[in-house]
Each structure stands twice: as C-alpha cells, then as structure tokens.
Design a protein around this nucleic acid. Structure first.
Length: 597
RNA sequence: GGGCGCGUGGUGCAGCGGUUAGCACACCGGCCUGUCAAGCCGGAGGUCGCGGGUUCGAACCCCGUCGCGCCCGCCA
C-alpha cells in the first residue's frame, strides 16, 4: 500500500501518529518560509505543513507542487493550536507535518479548478467528467447512489427477493417508447432491441415460480432527453407473485422509509403512512398526478361563484363545460403589476389564455384585476377560496386539462417563490385509481395509460365493454416532492382478460401473437396472480441528494442531444463494421442554405 | 420536429455599432514562517463558436449553421 491512512479521515485521535498519505494536491499556500498543502482524497481534505526545519528536502519539492499533482506524503499528525483550528474542515483539528514528499505523478493545469463552489459550464464539466467527478459534491452524489442501491439490495434480499439478470438484447415490441435497435450480424436484416424495462421478462419469471424478483436494471428509451430523462437510466424493477396492490404498496413504502432513514437520516418524511390520492383527486386538488405535498395551496373550484357574476369571459367557459379554478398565494398581495404579469406570462406559456387575479385587502375588500366583477359575490368568493387579508388569488378558466396544467405548474412556481418546498423534507404520496386507458384522439383508439398488461379493477371489468374510459386500473404511482419516483400495477394473469384488453387497444389477434405471443403462451401454463413496481433510481437519488437534475447523480451522463462529450459517442463507424452488419447509411437530404439577401 | 436562452483569454462573466476588447479567478515569475478562496508586486494569455450579409466601420445588427441548457411535442 502506498498509504497508511486516508487524508480525509484523520481526526484529533490520530495525534502524534506517523502516517503515510497519498492523494491530490488540492491547493498550495506558499508563505515563502512555510508551505501549506491541502491534500485531497475521496474522504476529504487535510492540511499538510512543510516547515524547512522539519521537512528537509520535502520543503524544496513542495515549492514545485501544482494543482492536482498526485503525491505521497509521510509525516506526523499534530493537533492544531486552538486559534488555528479550521471549523470548516472535518480534519480541521489536526494537520500533518511532512517529513517526506514523493511526487507520484505531475498533473497538467486542469481546465477548471476542482472545487464545489465554482461556476463551470456543464459542457466543460461533461467534456472532462473525470475531473468533474473529483469534486466533493459529485463524490457525495455517487456515494449516496451507491448506498441507495446497496441498501435496496440488502433489504430486499432479507425479505426473500432474488436478484435475477434479464437480457439486454431482446425482441423489439413497438409499443410505448421508441426502441434502441441493435443489428444482428448472424441473422442479416434482423435486429435486437434494448429493453425499455424488463417488464415482460419479469412477468415470465413469475410464471417460472420465482415468487419474488428484483433487479437494478438498466433501461433504454430512444426518446428526447430532459433534466429528469436520459436515454439510458436505472430502474429498481420488482415483481411479486400472489399479491394484491396493497402488498406491493406496503412493501415499497417500508423500503422507501427505511432507505431514507438510513441514507439521508437528516431528511424528514412529511407524513407516514404515506398519504393516498386517487388520480382524479390529485388532478382536482393539485393539478398534477405527481403533486408536491410539502405544501398546501390547493386548487379551489370557483365556477359556482363566477356563475353568479356578469363576467362574460368566465361565464361562457362555464356554460361550454369548462372549469374555473383558483389558487391562493398567501401574502402575495404585495406583488406589483409587473410581478403579476410575470406570472401571467408563465401561465400563457403553459397554455392559459390569461390569468385572472385579485388582491384581498384589509377587511376582506377586493382590489385590482377582476375585483369589480366579484363585488356582488365577495362573501362567497372569500369563503370558497379561504383567502385572507394580504393574499393574492390567481384564477384560470378553461377546459379541465388546461386549468389543471396551468394552476398545477403555477402552484409549484409559487411554492418555490414562497420557499415552501423545504430542502430536507420528503413528501411522498401514492397516486391510485388511474384510468386503465385513455382515448387517443390522433389515432382514434384507446391507449393503455400504464401498459397493456395492467389489470383493471375487478369491479370495473364489466365497464370494459360499455365505458372503457371509466375503467380504473390496479395501478399505483409513488410521487415524492413533485417527482414521479415509481410506478407499478397488478398484472393481468388471465388469458381472457388479456384478450379483451388487446381488443380494446385495437391490437388484433395476429399482431398480439406477433408481439406478445411468447407471453400469452406462457400465461396459458399457469400464471400466478402477480404485480410489481419499478422505481426510477436516478430520480430517487436526485431527490435524496438535493440535485436539480439526474445528470448530477449519473457518473457519465449524456447531453440533451444524446451525446457523451467525454468519449464522443455517438460516432461514425468503420464502413467494414457496417458491411458485416449488412447496413447502409442513408442520410436525409439537406436543403441548401439559402443566402440572406 | 417546434419555441426560448446562452456561446467573448484556461474558467466564470462584463462590454451590445467607432474602446488599445475590460474584470475576477486560474496560469507564469518574484517577495513573504500560520495560512486554509492566504497576501503583496510583476507578467503572459483573445481568429469575441463557425459561415455569410448589412455598414465607411460589426464582439455588438440581420440570416444561416453548430454546440450547450430549459420547455412543448415525444417519453406504454
């Protein structure tokens, strides 16, 4: 070993010990007759002192040290005098008097300083990700991720789950997201697909009698990226035989609760047991199917109040079957016209035609915006909205979809502005009773909301023939702090119900056989009732690590255009490789650039 | 596929029609024995993403293009 101790782990208890450390030169403070070097390793930073009287030759070598040089240091741990203790450093009570210094490897000047509190463009961070990952913040994130996955594995193992790997090269089933394809060399003209999730395979494992399965599974979806979406991401995929929805929910709630207590004990879970909302209720009250329940500010229906007024704009919306809802922003009556139009611009960007507002003044008087239309119904308005003196009430009138979308987003925006989305609080909520299918206007057919194997609620099965839109699924999502963190369902295990589902989704027998024949066949040999769930591990870790996007908790993520800036993927390949795969590249025609006259 | 924003020494930013293109940090040299974002003195470092256009004159205005980010579509 090149070292006896880790630099970041040294404490007062190590005083007077002889140690050998190895790591990176974080910073050098050269006082001429005395040199301080901050030595950094994965565990942290410790101050090394080079004193000519005690360090000998090492002092001279220390003068040549630069950022990120890799060094080995031998010396003695000493307690710092009281006035020299650095409370900002975990190792701040001690320092190491160096007696020997070996430069293991010189470093070029890095393109950016390795430090948390520095602004670096993300492009550069990704180009030099290996340097970016040296920063304490990134190491902390990767550590949280490691501990999360390790905890999940141990916890599920203790409860009888087996981790089973499923193939990465599978059959393409053009349902849902776009598949990543892999050409087959041995079978020219044919392709594998990378799994969007191990969904079908884990159901097959249930047929196999595995009983309780899980996997930390890499998944692939060839769709456009977002801050919370990468083309490859990690799921905790889990499936259980002979269970009902309540069993899956209870198990996952316990797992999540224990995970938080273990990995981020400083975080407080807002409410246990986790509250439950039906999908319909979540949309009505929060305008979202993944509401942030760290704060209230619920949407309030004010259609009845407006119906009694002379405000044509809103009345016509109500008459044509639309909705009028309000959100009360506590204390924001202080907002200026400018601030309010800022909110209105946001609302318009989300699809609203406008944003009506009114301020509540002393004594419940209304002012500004649409106040004059509300004069006659002032009492009812205040009672319905619950608005108090000093509040700002914001309203949208439109179709239910638009009203919920806009106010749901506005609620989050206001929650941010009012500081209601507390960092160390975790508000989990189960969303249940999702509709099984939704009408696809463009294609003129029903689409599965979850996936085609999701079981309807038994009592709703008759509705499959009469009113499919009303059928509720045995599906459940776990939302946390406004993010969709997990989603699952009880699956269909009966051939006749599955056939009915395919019929509803306009998948004919031949197509069903072609795409899912293997599964349908398997289910004819005694499939147990089963259900499961899949967590978005990246999102869970992102929330636990207080990061704003999942790139921060993935070692080597991709940019919005799907590029890996460090390796240069995707890239062109050798024509010989294409030839072996019997592939020919046909690039789209490029229109010649028209010159600007 | 669409919308918005950004692109200026190594890095982060300022400059927004005429400047010698500026600041901070980093970098290089010197001084300095208690700093910990050390300090002080000095120095070097720029095809203003790229291409075209407008103009007497473009980092700045216009068009196109590329890259990065956010959003819509998309994501069973």
């Amino acid at each position: 070993m090149l070292r006896t101790h880790l630099a970041g782990k040294l404490r007062a208890s190590h005083a007077d010990q002889h140690v050998v450390l190895a790591g990176w030169v974080h910073r050098r403070r050269d006082h001429g007759g005395l040199i301080f070097v901050d030595l950094r390793d994965r565990e942290g930073i410790v101050q090394i002192v080079f004193d000519p009287k005690r360090s000998g030759d090492a002092f001279n070598i220390a003068e040549s040290l630069r950022h990120e040089d890799v060094v080995q240091i031998e010396g003695t741990v000493a307690l710092r005098p009281a006035e020299m203790v650095n409370p900002n450093l975990a190792t701040g009570e001690v320092e190491v008097y160096a007696t020997r210094l070996t430069v293991l490897n010189r470093a070029k000047t890095p393109p950016f300083v390795i430090r948390d509190d520095i602004n670096v463009g993300e492009e550069l961070r990704l180009r030099y990700r290996y340097l970016d990952l040296r920063r304490p913040r990134m190491q902390r994130n990767l550590h949280i991720r490691h501990r999360t996955i390790k905890f999940i594995r141990d916890w599920l193992d203790a409860r009888g789950f087996w981790e089973i790997e499923t193939p990465i090269l599978i059959k393409s089933t053009p349902e849902g997201a776009r598949d990543f394809l892999v050409p087959s060399r041995l079978q020219p003209g044919k392709f594998y697909a990378l799994p969007q999730s191990p969904q079908q395979l884990k159901q097959m494992l249930m047929v196999s009698g595995i009983d309780r399965y899980f996997q930390i599974a890499r998944c692939f979806r060839d769709e456009d990226l977002r801050g919370d979406r990468q083309p490859e991401f990690t799921q905790l995929d889990l499936e259980m035989a002979f269970v009902e929805a309540e069993d899956v929910i209870a198990l996952n709630e316990a797992l999540m609760t224990n995970l938080v207590q273990t990995v981020t004990p400083h975080k407080r879970i807002t409410q246990t047991p986790f509250p439950r909302l039906t999908y319909a209720e979540a949309m009505e009250r929060y305008g979202s199917d993944k509401p942030d329940l760290r704060f209230g500010m619920e949407l309030v229906d004010v259609a009845d109040v407006w119906a009694q007024t002379d405000f044509r704009a809103f009345k016509s919306v109500i008459e044509s079957g639309g909705r009028v809802k309000a959100i009360v922003a506590p204390g924001l009556a202080t907002y200026s016209r400018k601030k309010i139009s800022e909110l209105e611009e946001l609302a318009k960007g989300w699809g609203a035609k406008g944003l009506a507002w009114v301020k509540v003044e002393e004594g419940g008087k209304l002012s500004g915006g649409v106040a004059r239309f509300l004069e006659s119904v002032r009492g009812a308005f205040l009672e319905t909205t619950g608005a108090q003196t000093g509040d700002l009430v914001l309203m949208v009138a439109d179709t239910a979809d638009v009203v919920h979308e806009v106010l749901g987003r506005l609620r989050l925006e206001l929650g941010d502005r009012l500081g209601l989305r507390h960092k160390d609080e975790l508000a989990f909520v189960w969303i249940v009773d999702f509709p099984l299918v939704e009408w696809n206007e463009d294609e003129g057919r029903w689409d599965a909301v979850h996936h085609p194997f999701t079981s309807p609620k038994p009592e709703d099965i008759p509705l499959l023939d009469t009113d499919p839109g009303k059928v509720r699924a045995q599906a459940y999502d776990l939302a946390g702090n406004g993010w969709e963190l997990a989603g699952g369902s009880i699956r269909i295990h009966r051939r006749d119900v599955q056939a009915k589902m395919f019929q509803l989704l306009n998948i004919d027998e031949a197509t069903a056989q072609e795409r899912f024949g293997h599964m349908l066949e398997a289910f004819e040999y005694g499939a147990p009732p089963h259900g499961g769930i899949a967590w978005g591990i990246d999102r869970v870790v992102m929330v636990l690590a207080d990061e704003p996007n999942i790139r921060e908790v993935i070692a080597f993520p991709k940019t919005a255009s799907g590029a890996d800036l460090m390796t240069g993927a995707p890239s062109e390949v050798d024509p010989k490789q294409l030839e072996e795969l019997h592939l020919k590249i046909v690039l789209p025609e490029r229109e010649p650039a028209s010159s600007a006259e």
